[in-house]
Nucleic acid binder design. Structure first.
Length: 423
RNA sequence: GGAGACGUGUCCGAGUGGUUGAAGGAGCACGCCUGGAAAGUGUGUAUACGGGUAACUGUAUCGCGAGUUCGAAUCUCGCCGUCUCCGCCA
């Protein structure tokens, strides 16, 4: 959520930036300013009336003690008449505030200066590529055949137990999941991230805090009996650790990492995008999250991208890094880098990580602040990225490393998997 | 799930209707003291939204929400949470 005062002071710049994100409902910006004007006016009126009520009430107390009953009674009458104004004022204020917030929630974050213009993934900017695309032998197959061949995942069984998009990992497939999670967490904690194992359901407040609500209501599974939401990413519970807090400047940066299953309804997906491991309702992911000083978030963003890049390099996967264009970025992000790995058998790039700087868009909603050197309270910046999401990594690992008699895992995984080969 | 007790500032803790945004203590910050430190001592130490260049000032906030009252941390109701006992249970 953008800050109202920022919008007030930078109206034209806000409009110009929103255009890069192809945000069309620009009248909302002026509506917000008008609603805020109204809010201030009502607030002032309310404060003045309430001030009079407060002072009169004190006065009444004094008069009563002095036994001046008549004067007290006439003051009571005055207060009573003021109160008839206060109730509707309160109601109006609540209404205006709600409308203001509702409008504010519709405005996406402003893209950073280096975000390219564009509407579709084709407009994303290639930052760099690394690793080598393997040449597969004849007869190489996509991962959904390999998972069957080596009995790694039983998709039909998952469908029987739950529904499509809920894979049942079996045998070496289950073990590989465990090995990858463990490796990723170790890699992240070695870089100074503190490990968390969060709840996999969150309450409504937390879902609002990181912006899943009200924007993506239909994308989360909702346990209605208790009004909990299944998390679509560990970002939600972990970032909310710092909801409603005021940190010391020395506490920054805060670096957290967490494994969690991720639950996504993915309403509206279809076709080759959902084949095999490409898109699931439940998948495993390890996330990294940082809360930093606002002056340092871009520096941090670079280190996080480099961190995930190193992780991909260690897995010996061909990858590329993209800077997303305005149209392809998420609602809350100021800038996003996608890291993709090349799936040799499908001959396509698969997104395995998305690293974003949210600047103060999330922390404004979360009220995650810190006291700076002058004792002033200001908002922190938040960032997060996948490090890494498992399914597409698994798809690429299987496809790119397939041989006639098995799948050769990259060296870093040998000790975690306690074998070199899936066979 | 049932019964009971409780929920006050960074922490501990007082406060059952009226100058209480909140005693006292601890912690923390700054100053004095000291060769330096400890001890001692003085001052300061919540958040949000308004107004004001500023000093300052208005309003709201004692788990959350609603209510009673001229006036609520204090009374009433609902919700949430914590603790104890019982039930159930990995």
């Amino acid at each position: 959520m953008l800050q109202v005062n920022y919008i007030r002071q930078n109206r034209d710049a806000v409009l110009e930036r929103l255009a890069v994100k192809n945000f069309s409902q620009i009248q909302i910006v002026d509506d917000v300013i008008a609603l805020d004007d109204e809010r201030k006016k009502l607030q002032a009126e309310f404060d003045n009336t309430q001030a009079r009520v407060n002072s009169a009430s004190k006065e009444i107390g004094n008069l009563m003690r002095q036994g001046k009953k008549d004067e007290a009674e006439s003051l009571k009458a005055e207060v009573a008449s003021l109160k008839t104004n206060i109730d509707p004022l309160k109601a109006q204020m609540a209404d205006v505030e709600k409308r203001l917030i509702d409008q504010l929630l519709l405005i996406p974050n402003l893209p950073a200066a280096e975000v390219p213009k564009g509407k579709t993934p084709e407009d994303n900017e290639l930052v760099r590529e690394g690793g080598e695309k393997p040449t597969l032998a004849d007869g190489a197959v996509p991962h959904w055949e390999l998972t069957t061949k080596y009995k790694l995942i039983d998709f039909e069984l998952g469908t029987k137990i739950t529904g499509s998009g809920f894979p049942m990992y079996t045998g070496q497939g289950a073990k590989l999941q465990r090995a990858l999670v463990q490796y990723f967490l170790d890699f992240n904690t070695a870089a100074g991230y503190v490990e968390y194992l969060p709840p996999f359901m969150v309450n409504e407040e937390s879902a609002y805090g990181t912006g899943q609500l009200p924007d993506k209501e239909g994308q989360m599974y909702h346990a209605t009996a208790d009004n909990f939401y299944l998390i679509p990413t560990a970002e939600v519970p972990v970032t909310n650790v710092y909801r409603d807090t005021i940190l010391k400047e020395d506490d920054l940066p805060i670096k957290m990492t967490a494994y969690s299953p991720c639950f996504r309804r993915e309403a509206g997906s279809y076709g080759k995008d959902v084949r095999g491991l490409n898109r699931l309702h439940q998948f495993e992911k390890v996330e990294i999250i940082q809360i930093v000083h606002p002056g340092k978030s871009y520096e941090t963003l670079d280190t996080m991208v480099a961190h995930v890049e190193k992780l991909l390099q260690s897995l010996e996967l061909p990858y590329r890094i993209l800077r997303l264009c305005g149209g392809d970025m998420g609602f809350a992000s100021a800038i996003t880098y996608d890291l993709e790995v090349y799936s040799a058998a499908q001959q396509r790039w698969l997104e395995v990580s998305s690293v974003s700087n949210f600047e103060n868009f999330q922390t404004n909603r979360l009220k995650c602040r810190f006291k700076d050197a002058n004792g002033k309270t200001q908002l922190t910046h938040s960032l997060n990225g996948s490090s890494l999401a498992l399914p597409r990594i698994v798809a690429a690992l299987l496809e790119n490393n397939q041989m006639a008699d098995g799948i050769m895992l990259p060296k870093v995984l040998h000790s975690y998997f306690r074998a070199q080969l899936i066979m």
